[in-house]
Design a protein around this nucleic acid. Structure first.
Lengths: 225, 225
DNA sequence: CAAATAGTGTCTTTGAGACACTATCGT
DNA sequence: ACGATAGTGTCTCAAAGACACTATTTG
């Protein structure tokens, strides 16, 4: 076949090549605040500044595989929600050389997060997203623009579907907890009764309740299939 | 400064490099059908098959610039709507070598399209999207997957906003025409009265009407600011 | 004036929003 | 019993859906 002949004589070096990275924006909610995982850069460029954890894509791995590798290496996670955000390709976005980056959003429940904290992972730390996005806060590269874009996407996504909100909570969760997640991501408070009517079709009541906490216990739900 | 010293000694070759392409999915509506612009591949791989027009990203251009370059070179267009779709990064998606592709959606009105047709551009041709997505139709690389993804995004976008529908029509348009665009993208028919109520806030009536056509003329509108 | 398309009025249904109410737990 | 949070009932209002009607042009 002609295609095969061609491939033998093909010279891959005749086209420009560049470096490709993936960045993983790991969000979670701690103490009722949206947080993002950032790493402290140990070497130039932007030494000493905070950045979104990322890595170069290897020749034999897909973008998703590369992203999951970062999440595991820098934060210690496996099996977490990951969704492509955007490809960033400004020519001068990295002072070293031409680097295009594909960013991914991933979300952790506090439950999963705490499991990992026990492993003494201190490469990365979680920061308050509102603080990170405030004027006085700086991030390496174009990472502040990326976080801004991601923050808006989270709000947009929740506006039209409650899908991602389940990623922020444990497998079993209470409706007040889930409502809080919606409120944090949307940036406004919601009416309890209305919220419950809306998500009723996506959740299933279990016969368990919270216990040990003050005041009236709350029924535990699981996500509907 | 330390960062600057570092950059002088930095060796960009120590990381894997790969080729990056952009693909431009150009949609339009002709004769009441959604069409996509495809090129006939003149050389291997996938010689003789249809593909989404694309190009390698050069070292000194952004992804958007590269995409606009393809649109101009292969279809003859400038100043058209362009929106990033997705980054495709499967390891074996190109038989020659590792190539990651960032795809963009662009939309043309038939009016703009006809202007270009007069330039005798025959490198690319428009194909019926329903036909392209039917089981018997094949495209080069993973391009059928990309078209499928784009087709769904168009429907999703129209569902929540009428923004992109204006890209399909001329600057001045009638409401029956705009409604048809919505119907084609959504894949279902809409009630005239309801449609008009919904888009009323996004359009402004002009004092012009269509003429020369059979039956009652239609009022021309422009997009509201 | 008939045929065909353009454009409107209005009833129904659905769901979001607002708010007041009841229920159940720990102390 | 009380304080505090969990959970429910229901009115209002705005928008989507369905459908029937009127209006304006060409031939």
């Amino acid at each position: 076949m002609k295609n095969e002949e061609y491939l033998k004589t093909y010279n891959p070096d005749k086209y420009d090549k560049l470096s490709l990275t993936v960045d993983g924006l790991i969000f979670t909610i701690i103490d009722g605040k949206l947080k993002i995982c950032l790493v402290d850069r140990k070497k130039p460029p932007f030494e000493g500044m905070l950045a979104i954890p990322g890595t170069f894509v290897k020749m034999d791995e897909s973008l998703e595989q590369a992203c999951k590798r970062v999440l595991k290496d820098k934060a210690g996670f496996e099996d977490i929600y990951i969704d492509q955000l955007y490809a960033w390709g400004r020519v001068d976005r990295d002072p070293r050389m031409r680097i295009v980056s594909v960013s991914y959003i991933s979300i952790l429940s506090e439950e999963k997060l705490l499991k990992v904290r026990t492993k003494e992972e201190i490469l990365s730390e979680f920061y308050d997203v509102d603080a990170v996005l405030s004027d006085s806060f700086e991030l390496a590269f174009d990472h502040k623009e990326i976080v801004t874009y991601a923050r808006k996407k989270l709000a947009r996504d929740v506006e039209k579907s409650s899908d991602i909100t389940f990623e922020f909570v444990s497998e079993k969760f209470t409706l007040p907890t889930l409502q809080k997640v919606h409120e944090i991501l949307l940036g406004r408070s919601l009416y309890k009764a209305n919220f419950r009517k809306k998500i009723a079709e996506y959740v299933v009541e279990t016969d368990e309740k919270t216990s040990g906490e003050a005041y009236r216990p709350s029924i535990l739900y699981v996500k509907a299939k």
